[in-house]
Design a protein around this nucleic acid. Structure first.
Length: 425
RNA sequence: GCGGGCGUCGCCAAGUGGUUAAGGCAGCGGCUUGUGGCGCCGCUAUUCGGGGGUUCGAAUCCCCUCGCUCGCCCCA
C-alpha cells in the first residue's frame, strides 16, 4: 500500500454505493416535503463552545470524541459531532426563532474521533429533522411517525421502535440523587465501568452490558417512579397516540440518550440487521436546549438517522442496480470518432444517455464493452458508415437475428432515430 | 483508550523454512482490418504492508511498526 490513503474512519463512496445514497436522499426530499419540513444547511465547522454548551461538558462526545483544533486566529474550532446544536445556533443567529414555529430537516457529514467498527466511522452522515416551538404530545408523535414512516417507506423490515421518557430536568435531578445513593450502598457489587460512571454520568449505568450489574439493577429505583405526575401522564398520552396511529413500540426504561439536552420523550429505532451498533434512528425532545444556547424558552423535538447504518440496511434488504447508458457508441477511426461526438450531443439533448467508446480498439472488443456497459442499444460507426453516410443501430438486449438487420439511418435523420428509440424503450 | 482476527498483482486468493511465488476475475494483444456474454493462445508480482533479526536459505520463524477489520466503551 502506498501512503496516500484516506484517514482512518474516513471512507470514500465509490460508484457502486452512490446509487443507494441517491435513492435515500431523493426519497428523503420527497418524504420531508410531504411533511412540510424545510431544509437547512449549516457549516461543518463551528466554535467549540457551541458543542460544549449544547451537548454537555460531561458527555463522551464532548469529552473525548471531538475533532477540535485552533485556527490561525487561535480560535478553538470543532468539526460538528452532530447537527442539532448547529441548527439551534443558526435559527437564533438568523432570527428565524422569532418567526413562529420551525419545521426543519438537514443532511450532512458529522465527525467523531472514535475507533471505527461496523456501522461507525469517524466521518459519518446524519439525516435529521427538528421541530421548534411545539410542546404538544401530538408534535412528539408526529416526529416519531415521520421517522418511522420514512424507514418503512424505504421498504425496510425488522424495525423496532423503542420508547422512554426522561421526564423534566427536575425529575431527573430527583432520580439521580436517589439512584446514586442507592448505588453507593452497593458500590462493591458494581463492575468497574459502572463504578467509574457513578461520578461521571450515573444515568448511563442503566445502559450497562455487564450481566451481574444488570441483575443488581433489577431492584434499583427506576426513573419512571421518579417522574412527576405530569410527566407520567404525558408519557402515557404519547403511548396512547402511537397506538391510535398503529405504530408499534416497545417501552425501554433503560433507554437513556447520551446527550445532555434530552428531556421527556426519548426514542430509538433499531434493526436486527445491523451489527452491534443497532440504532439507525435516535431522537427525542430537548426543551431546554434553545434557552441554554441563549435563546428564548422554546420547546423542541427531533431525530437523526445514521446514513451509513441506513445504507447497510438498504444494501442488505433492497436490491438496487446502478444506472446504465441507453446507448453505447462504438466507433473506429478518426472521422468516425468525430461523428460519434456529434451524434452523442444530439442524442443527449433529447435526454438519451450515451456512452462513447474512446479506445479506437478492435470492434470485437468494443462490442464486449458495449455488452458489459448494460446499454440496451449499440450504435456502430466505422469506415463503411462514413462512406455511406449512415450509422448502424443494434439491439443488445434482444439478441435475436432480426436485430442484425436493424434499420439504417441517414445522419440527417437523427430525429427519426430518437423517435425510434423512444418507441422501442 | 482497551481486546480479538487479518495484511501475497487492480480484485479474490493458494502457498506454513528449500531450486523460476499456483489459480480465478478484471485488463491488454491475438485467433477474427468490422460485429456480441462463449472458446482457445499469449502478456501482466525479481516479490509477499513496512523495517530489523535468526538461518547456507524466509511470504513462511522472532521482534518492532503501519494499516484494515470486528468487538468493548459510546453513539447515528
Amino acid at each position: 500500500m502506498n501512503n496516500l490513503q484516506s484517514l482512518r474512519g474516513m471512507v470514500d463512496l465509490l460508484p457502486a454505493q452512490t446509487m443507494s445514497w441517491q435513492f435515500i436522499e431523493s426519497f428523503a426530499r420527497k418524504h420531508f416535503r410531504k411533511a412540510s419540513l424545510e431544509e437547512i444547511r449549516t457549516p461543518i465547522l463551528e466554535s467549540t463552545e457551541l458543542f460544549a454548551r449544547g451537548i454537555g461538558e460531561g458527555t463522551d462526545v464532548v469529552g473525548k470524541e471531538m475533532y477540535t483544533f485552533l485556527d490561525r486566529g487561535d480560535r478553538s474550532c470543532t468539526l460538528r459531532p452532530e447537527g442539532t446544536a448547529s441548527v439551534v445556533r443558526s435559527i437564533l443567529q438568523s432570527g428565524l426563532i422569532n418567526q413562529g414555529p420551525q419545521r426543519l430537516w438537514y443532511n450532512g457529514p458529522m465527525f467523531r474521533y472514535e475507533r471505527p467498527q461496523a456501522g461507525r466511522q469517524r466521518q459519518f452522515h446524519q439525516l435529521g429533522i427538528e421541530l421548534f416551538g411545539f410542546d404538544s404530545v401530538q408534535s412528539d408523535v408526529e416526529v416519531i411517525a415521520i421517522g418511522w414512516d420514512f424507514l418503512k417507506g424505504l421498504g425496510l423490515k425488522d424495525l423496532t421502535l423503542e420508547l422512554n421518557s426522561l421526564g423534566t430536568n427536575e425529575d431527573r435531578k430527583n432520580f439521580r440523587t436517589r439512584f446514586v445513593s442507592w448505588l453507593e450502598d452497593r458500590i462493591a457489587f458494581l463492575d468497574k465501568d459502572s463504578q467509574d460512571r457513578l461520578t461521571t454520568n450515573p444515568l448511563r449505568i442503566l445502559d450497562t452490558k455487564n450481566e451481574e450489574t444488570k441483575k443488581l439493577l433489577l431492584d434499583a429505583p427506576c426513573l419512571q417512579n421518579s417522574l412527576c405526575t405530569k410527566s407520567r401522564e404525558r408519557f402515557e398520552d404519547i403511548q396512547a397516540t402511537l397506538k391510535f396511529l398503529e405504530i408499534p413500540f416497545k417501552i425501554n426504561n433503560e433507554l437513556v440518550r447520551g446527550l445532555d439536552y434530552y428531556s421527556h420523550t426519548a426514542f430509538e429505532i433499531t434493526s436486527d440487521n445491523l451489527g452491534s451498533q443497532a440504532t439507525v434512528c435516535g431522537g427525542g425532545r430537548y426543551d431546554g436546549l434553545v434557552s441554554e444556547l441563549g435563546g428564548p424558552e422554546t420547546p423542541a423535538i427531533g431525530w437523526a438517522i445514521g446514513m451509513e447504518r441506513l445504507i447497510l440496511l438498504i444494501e442488505k434488504e433492497l436490491n438496487l442496480v446502478n444506472s446504465t447508458p441507453d446507448i453505447y457508441l462504438i466507433n473506429k477511426g478518426n472521422q468516425a470518432g468525430e461523428y460519434a461526438l456529434f451524434l452523442s450531443r444530439a442524442l443527449r439533448q433529447s435526454d438519451i444517455s450515451v456512452e462513447i467508446d474512446h479506445t479506437d480498439s478492435a470492434f470485437s472488443k468494443q462490442f464486449k464493452r458495449a455488452y458489459r456497459s448494460g446499454a440496451n442499444w449499440a450504435i456502430v460507426l466505422g469506415d463503411n458508415e462514413i462512406v455511406e453516410q449512415r450509422f448502424t443501430l443494434k439491439s443488445i438486449k434482444e439478441k435475436s437475428d432480426s436485430n442484425s438487420k436493424s434499420p439504417l439511418f441517414l445522419f440527417s435523420q437523427i430525429e427519426k432515430l430518437i423517435t425510434y428509440l423512444n418507441e422501442r424503450t
